[in-house]
Nucleic acid binder design. Structure first.
Length: 839
RNA sequence: GGGCUGGUGGCGGAAUUGGUAGACGCGACAGACUUAAAAUCUGUUGAUCGCAAGAUCGUGGGGGUUCGAGUCCCCCCCUGCCCACCA
């Protein structure tokens, strides 16, 4: 019996595949059946791959190989999302140019990914930092600019004082910078913005036809945040000003007892009375000093100040006071609200605190003495709306307002325009010049790519300008329009830019004349299956859909959506072990002989195990290189798939991989000793099991149930391995089914069996439905809902046969003595349930 | 506070539309092989009672619907993730 050296097999087969260019996709699909299977490409960090990366890559690899064996032309590429802060921060700290670090990291990532034997077409590799690539990122920016979708604006942006750059709303979490956790400040800066809001409705509507996880669709919907309501104008008493508010509850207009403006609202100064001026000023200052996080804390007590002004309710002419309060946000709606304390929780809390009126306008059992009522009900105290329900009165009041001219139906979105510029070096230069005479002038397309110039210092200036601003010979240029002196834009694009459209470039990555050849795009687009982490549910996936729609409008792509099917891999966690003193211990220090109570080898201390995220401080980080060295690529791949459901977060268990590794070793040594002959005939049950396994594995791959697919393969092998001599078909079917999960070892066995072909070019096995019906199955027999016996019959038995078999059981007959059978329920293939009562 | 997940043996996890709970793997125990150990192979392994046949209990807790509930309904507890004053 040969002992497999998996590392050697991995290397040998990978070299064979590479030499044969086995994974290269044709320029155009030849078969008429194409499958584009895409992984979210990684940021090549200095730490190298972690075990989470290969989880998604293995899944996409299995799907790709499966589709290929089913006769598809499969496009399965890989590349690098290589602009970004870590390389730049590293440059600031060490002076090493980001290009050098990035190249080194890419080489390391490529080496690691190749070591897993992934079926990528490496000729299609892309790198977002290559001028050949970012030429087209810049080209898309120019198209956005021409369509009026890119504009400059001086906006109070989220400013990270540590990264010294502006951040998009999407990059701010709990008022802190997503990357460095520093609390965000507000800073006014000139920024490039992308008008993603112009596409809000389409981004929302087109979610409809996507095969995406429901939770991701939900998050996108919430992020776009469509809300239908009305805008209503309130006159300010004794002034010319009008306050416009947005409300989703125009039906409660008769219940409006005060108004609130955001502290930053432009009308505040104009309407504030002299007596209130000091208080208002003080409050505005206070609000400005608070950071986003403090202001957004919904739990805190409401604060606010009366402006001294009154507005007039346009329905009944009633005077209501105008306040300012920071629970009203500038960025949403109109930055002003009509407050209906009876039917809004926040308004209620505010009114209670400041002793403002509460007028009930919707009837409810509970009333509004204790808290606001936000449900549906009948309108009261509302003149011509009385007696209507909420929906009906909304329509009626909007119609009335439109007739009278003080309000109208209005849809708002939570989605904001995208702050698209960064004050950074390591990003795509924005292809714009600022001319003294002509103003903003886009570069002609012929001047692309606009290359990133060399700099000596990578620090952002901290004043809001990027390091590029210091390179005068680059900044100073001539205007492409008038030829006069001009300055280049020194902002660069955010990291998201390159990943917005990369799936298109893989299709045609060497094209010098177009982003992608339209013929090729038509043939390969859209992405049929997209795999990556759920953390991109609203960032990358929304931006990318936005750009795709713009490209669709330009005729560059032929589908409305870029990614037809999307699946997320779960996060891989790890067991960590902590002793009573709170110190973490590495796996090497732990004696696992008693798993219920692992002991430290060193001192025998009692440990508690926890499932946590991998982190150095918890000493539970798993390095893929180490695993590969010990177990080989196939065991790694198969274990990652076997651990648990693909989309669930699950812990890496150092002992768990042993099982899969043993399985593969057994497969190898069994095949090594095996006699494959034409005459060998396996028992019928084994033959049926083969067909069952083909069905199960095929269906499981389609549904991303890789864990149960591996399990089915183990079950089949446990049976098959009892035989030293098998027929050719059984042997080959098993190898083919296992191949996507463990490509190296199966290819090795295939080759050892005398084949010079590759398994990937073999056809995926099919199964015989009729044969499955001949299986002998065991069904349960219940009496009054309790299982009392089990009987065997063939899978195609009819109901009568089920009943006969159940009543034929001696045990059942004994139990039924002295009982009257009231009813017999037969579920074919599952069970027979007998309802009986004592006679 | 809101939304979305999930809660099944010592552990990771299986279980179409309600239909034999615990597949598969790990670990553990016993045995074989070995001078010995590792590796490998074979068997056992939800709990309780029992010599056994077998019985009873059992999917976070409590109720309900049903011949039958991990799965459906109501109430409650807990975990994880996301969002967080969105008018």
């Amino acid at each position: 019996m040969a002992i497999a050296n998996f590392q050697e097999i991995d290397k040998k087969q990978q070299e064979r595949w590479e030499k044969a260019k086995l994974f290269s996709a044709p320029r155009l699909p030849k078969t008429g059946k194409k499958f584009y299977c895409l992984d979210m490409f990684p940021y090549p960090s200095g730490q190298g791959l972690h075990v989470g990366h290969p989880e998604g890559y293995t899944a996409s690899d299995i799907v790709s190989r499966y589709k290929r064996m089913n006769g598809y032309d499969v496009l399965h590429p890989m590349g690098w999302d290589a602009f970004g802060l870590p390389a730049e921060n590293y440059a600031i700290a060490t002076g090493v140019h980001p290009r050098i670090t990035t190249q080194k990291n890419i080489d390391n990532f490529r080496r690691q990914i190749k070591s897993f034997g992934m079926a990528y077409d490496w000729d299609r590799e892309i790198d977002t930092t290559s001028p050949d690539y970012y030429k087209w990122t810049q080209w898309i920016f120019l198209q956005l600019y021409k369509k009026g979708l890119a504009y400059q604006s001086t906006v109070p942006i989220n400013w990270c004082p540590s990264c010294k750059t502006g951040l998009a709303n999407e990059e701010v979490f709990n008022g802190r910078c997503e990357r460095c956790q520093t609390p965000i400040e507000k800073k006014n800066l000139r920024q490039w913005m992308l008008k993603i809001t112009a596409y809000a409705e389409r981004l929302l509507e087109d979610l409809e036809g996507l095969d995406w996880p429901a939770s991701t669709l939900m998050m996108q919907r919430n992020w776009i945040g469509k809300s239908e309501g009305a805008e209503v104008d309130f006159k300010v008493e004794g002034k010319a000003e009008t306050i416009r508010v947005f409300t989703t509850r125009p039906d409660t207009l008769f219940g409006a007892t005060y108004m609130v403006l955001a502290p930053e609202h432009e009308l505040v100064e104009k309407i504030t009375s002299p007596e209130q001026k000091a208080a208002v000023e003080a409050y505005r200052k206070e609000a400005a000093a608070k950071n986003e996080f403090e202001r957004a804390d919904a739990e805190k007590e409401k604060t606010g100040v009366f402006t001294g002004a009154y507005a007039v309710n346009p329905l009944n002419g009633k005077k209501i006071p105008v306040w300012i309060a920071d629970y009203v946000l500038t960025g949403y709606g109109t930055g002003a609200i009509m407050a209906v304390p009876a039917h809004d929780d926040r308004d209620y809390a505010f009114a209670k605190k400041f002793g403002l009126d509460i007028i009930e306008v919707i009837k409810s059992e509970q009333g509004v003495a204790e808290k606001a009522f936000t449900g549906d009900g009948e309108l009261i105290n509302s003149d011509f709306l009385n007696g209507m329900r909420v929906a009906q009165s909304k329509a009626a009041i909007i119609k009335y307002m439109q007739e009278k001219g003080f309000g109208k139906a209005k849809t708002t979105y939570r989605l904001r325009d995208w702050v698209f510029s960064r004050q950074r070096y390591w990003g795509e230069p924005i292809p714009i010049v600022h001319c003294e005479k002509c103003g903003v002038v886009p570069l002609p397309e012929s001047e692309l790519p606009l290359r990133l110039p060399e700099v000596e210092k990578f620090e952002p200036s901290g004043t809001g300008e990027s390091p590029l601003a210091n390179i005068t010979e680059w900044v100073n240029t001539t205007c492409p329009h008038c030829g006069g002196p001009a300055k280049r834009e020194t902002n660069t694009m955010p990291q998201w830019a390159g990943s917005c459209w990369y799936y298109l470039r893989y299709m045609d990555n060497k094209n010098q004349n177009a982003l992608v050849d339209p013929e090729i795009e038509k043939a390969y687009g859209p992405v049929d299956c997209y795999i990556g982490g759920a953390e991109h549910a609203v960032l990358h996936l929304l931006y990318s859909r936005f750009w795709h729609k713009v490209l669709y409008d330009l005729g560059v792509v032929h589908t409305k959506e870029p990614y037809a099917k999307l699946r997320h891999q779960g996060m891989i966690l790890a067991f960590s072990y902590r002793d009573e003193a709170g110190n973490y211990h590495t796996y090497e220090e732990i004696d696992f002989s008693d798993p219920a109570n692992p002991k430290l080898k060193a001192n025998g201390a009692k440990l508690t195990s926890m499932i946590e995220k991998m982190s150095k401080s918890k000493k539970n980080v798993i390095n893929p290189d180490d695993i590969l060295k010990e177990y080989g690529a196939d065991a790694f791949r198969a274990y990652e798939m076997f651990m648990g459901p693909f989309d669930a977060s699950k812990p890496w268990d150092m002992r768990g991989i042993e099982g899969v590794s043993r399985f593969l070793k057994r497969v190898y040594s069994w095949a090594d000793d095996l006699k494959v002959s034409k005459d060998a005939k396996l028992p019928k049950e084994v033959e049926i099991l083969k067909h069952k396994t083909v069905k199960k594995v095929s269906e499981d791959i389609e549904s991303f149930s890789f864990n149960t697919a591996v399990s089915a393969l183990m079950i089949y092998f446990n049976e098959l391995s009892k035989y030293k001599e098998v027929d050719e078909n059984s042997f080959e079917v098993f190898l083919k089914l296992l191949h996507p999960f463990a490509p190296h070892i199966t290819e090795e066995i295939w080759q050892n069996a005398g084949h010079e072909t590759f398994l990937l070019n073999e056809r995926w096995p099919s199964y015989n439905k009729e044969l499955l019906l001949e299986e002998q199955i065991e069904i349960g027999v219940q009496i009054n809902g309790k299982i009392k016996d089990r009987v065997k019959l063939s899978a195609d038995s009819d109901k009568a046969a089920h009943e006969k078999a159940a009543l034929g059981s001696e045990k059942i007959q004994n139990l039924l003595k002295g009982q009257n059978i009231i009813k017999i329920i037969v579920v074919p293939g599952k069970m027979v349930s007998i309802v009986a009562r004592p006679s």
